[in-house]
Design a protein around this nucleic acid. Structure first.
Lengths: 152, 152
DNA sequence: AAGATATAATTTCCCGGTTGACAATTTACC
DNA sequence: GGTAAATTGTCAACCGGGAAATTATATCTT
């Protein structure tokens, strides 16, 4: 048991701001989602960032330069190198030479594609479960607000 | 210029899911906010997590055990130790003994409080600016949706 | 054609945070 | 009351990711 001497320390009165509340909540939710997500993908020995790379390649439908991958996923160039290193080691991706000898084109392999195919249902299921507290319409509203916030 | 041989690699058809879209957007927005926030607080030689500790202590209005701080900010005990170490070194916080000799009660100092007072306006200003793309009512909606999502 | 500038990837180093082990203490249980 | 289990804070080791410097190549300027 912890005996607290009578200390009063509510020092600073900070005016409540809807904007700040929303911002803090947004950061907290984001933080939690990243943790959960990471936890999930750890089962496959991957980071959610690794998975993201696979999804980006699959979505693009063609090999992409590393720098382009980094651009699409808000990651530093240095980090993309390491991400690709692991994915290539696992055979999910391969680097192709191309006309410009500075760039590596990164392509999804058969193995990477089938990994995506096998895990897609589960990944989507996870998303559905996470968002379940919100109805379909609320999810749409949320998505719209976030898009507006991102300014796109 | 990069010559791409005619490769078709759109392998896996993944059904579009509102839930997943919203989830991904949420994570992306959260990530961006954490980055911006960290960048801001770097001016004070702090992490946003350090600032968070100060806000939590101020909000609680009484000294808190480290484990309790960790609980409120979803951070590990070990990390709280390090956060408090720095804040104490800066004189913004101090550790108090209490009845239970396992726990350190952490209290906001005068210096910590005045730091909060001095920076509050700017921090709130940052939040307002970040959330500006949304109107007041939209901010409220967003906040409500996030709360519902957190299940509180 | 030659030198300056820009771009892509990689390497190295650093930082914040987590995990796991540990010591001190408290609580639960028999 | 006394031993086992649980709790708190700390430390050391590790890990994912970011920033800056490095190398190789391409483009621009003249």
């Amino acid at each position: 048991m912890c005996i607290v001497s009578p200390v009063k320390t509510t020092k600073v009165k900070i005016p409540p701001s809807i904007a700040e509340q929303a911002l803090v909540r947004l950061m907290r939710v984001g933080d939690r989602l990243w943790r959960n997500s990471d936890e999930r993908f750890a089962r496959w020995g991957l980071t959610d960032n690794h998975y993201n790379v696979l999804r980006i390649l699959n979505g693009a439908g063609e090999p992409l330069a590393q720098v382009e991958i980094g651009r699409r996923m808000l990651s530093s160039r240095a980090n993309v190198t390491k991400l690709i290193d692991l994915l290539e080691e696992r055979g999910m991706v391969k680097r192709l030479a191309c006309g410009d000898r500075r760039v590596n084109l990164v392509a999804l392999t058969e193995e990477g594609a089938s990994f995506l195919a096998e895990t897609a249902a589960e990944v989507i299921g996870f998303a559905e479960e996470t968002m379940k507290p919100l109805g379909r319409q609320e999810q749409k509203t949320l998505l719209a607000l976030l898009n507006k916030l991102l300014g796109e």
